[in-house]
């Protein structure tokens, strides 16, 4: 039977690119940040990551097999990304049962309800994260301090994130210049020497991941640059208008998971626009919303919300922002 020639419409060759290659490329790019989080948060980070990944895989398998009655597609690596991102977005000492709920929400509500990979409107990991943040505010905001490799899981020392410190301080009416002494310096922020969720602390590792993904052409520069640029410009304007009330751009970029969001979560294929122009609009939207939420909102941290809100606009962006067509008249 195998001797018959194949007939198909052109093209007859393929680049060899696959969903798996892209997904595992993203996972590879996340490894530096993962290693940093293991070093900083020790055993807790390992337990949280393993639980999140395993439960994401499990839920995706169960839901696609028994609810959607499809052949499970867990080998494509998307559940792995969701699991790691979910772990990156929670404190390293989060109880296991809360992680399980987070994974169920992320996969069950964030992804499979829409029909699985490729159809979800919102970034699944962020859906899980925000659900947990709203449902378990205490556990979700008691950040363990990065004390180097520590085998303790539950009794780690906890502390606030730099953004939360500033927000609390400003509420009390303390001047910013005073508060800035209490938070780590820029170099510490870059190296991850601050309180925060597992994956967000090590800026340098995240940037390494970005460089890898750009090099491998897994993502394009448009979204990260638009997000970070907008945050820098917007917070810079605010800072210049009143340095005592608003923190500087570098501080905003290095804290609160902005790098994590801009590099790994806003760039999620499924929930970001298709055209380059659209990506830039989407990135600017995320940047603006992030600063607005951080500076004027009730939460100290706004990246997750900003990305989720902009996710909702993606279908609209896709409809109205078209790529430039060949031969189109330039104005």
């Amino acid at each position: 039977m195998n001797t018959k020639v194949l007939v198909a419409p052109s093209p007859h060759v393929h680049s060899g690119d696959s969903i798996q290659k892209n997904m595992y490329g993203v996972v590879f790019a996340m490894l530096p940040a993962l290693v940093f989080s293991f070093v900083y948060f020790g055993m807790g980070a390992i337990i949280v990551t393993l639980t999140a990944v395993a439960s994401c895989y499990l839920f995706e398998f169960l839901i696609s097999k028994y609810l959607l009655k499809k052949v499970p597609t867990i080998t494509d690596g998307s559940a792995l990304i969701t699991g790691i991102l979910l772990a990156f977005n929670v404190p390293a000492n989060l109880p296991i049962w809360i992680i399980l709920i987070g994974a169920l929400v992320a996969i069950g509500i964030g992804k499979m309800t829409f029909g699985g990979l490729g159809n979800n409107v919102f970034n699944p990991a962020l859906v899980g994260r925000v659900f947990l943040l709203i449902s378990f505010p205490v556990q979700m905001t008691s950040w363990p301090k990065p004390l180097g490799f520590d085998t303790a899981y539950f009794d780690a020392q906890t502390g606030a994130t730099p953004l939360a410190l500033i927000k609390e301080g400003l509420k009390k009416g303390e001047p910013l210049s005073q508060l800035m002494h209490d938070v780590p310096g820029n170099m510490d922020l870059l190296m991850g020497n601050m309180g925060g969720s597992m994956g967000e602390v090590a800026g340098i590792a995240l940037l390494l991941g970005l460089a890898y993904m750009l090099f491998k052409k897994i993502i394009t520069w448009h979204i990260p640059v638009a997000v970070l640029g907008t945050v820098a410009v917007f917070s810079g304007i605010l800072h210049m208008s009143n340095p005592e009330a608003y923190a500087g751009p570098l501080f905003h970029i290095l804290t609160g998971g902005l790098l994590l969001g801009a590099i790994f979560m806003a760039t999620d294929y499924v929930t970001s626009p298709m055209s380059n122009k659209g990506m830039i609009i989407y990135g600017i939207g995320i940047g603006l919303l992030t600063v607005i939420i951080r500076v004027f909102g009730a939460y100290p941290e706004g990246v997750s919300f900003a990305i989720l809100i902009m996710n909702a606009f993606v279908p609209l962006i896709n409809v109205y922002v078209k790529p430039k067509r060949f031969g189109e008249k330039r104005k």
């Binding site: 690119d17 969903i19 892209n22 597609t73 494509d76 998307s78 699985g116 990979l117 490729g118 159809n119 394009t220 294929y269 499924v270 929930t271 970001s272 626009p273 298709m274 055209s275 380059n276 990506m279 790529p323």
Partner: peptide, 11 residues
């Protein structure tokens, strides 16, 4: 496989 909306075809 299902479209993952990566936008590579567009680019």
């Amino acid at each position: 496989k299902p479209c993952i909306r990566c936008g590579k075809c567009v680019s």
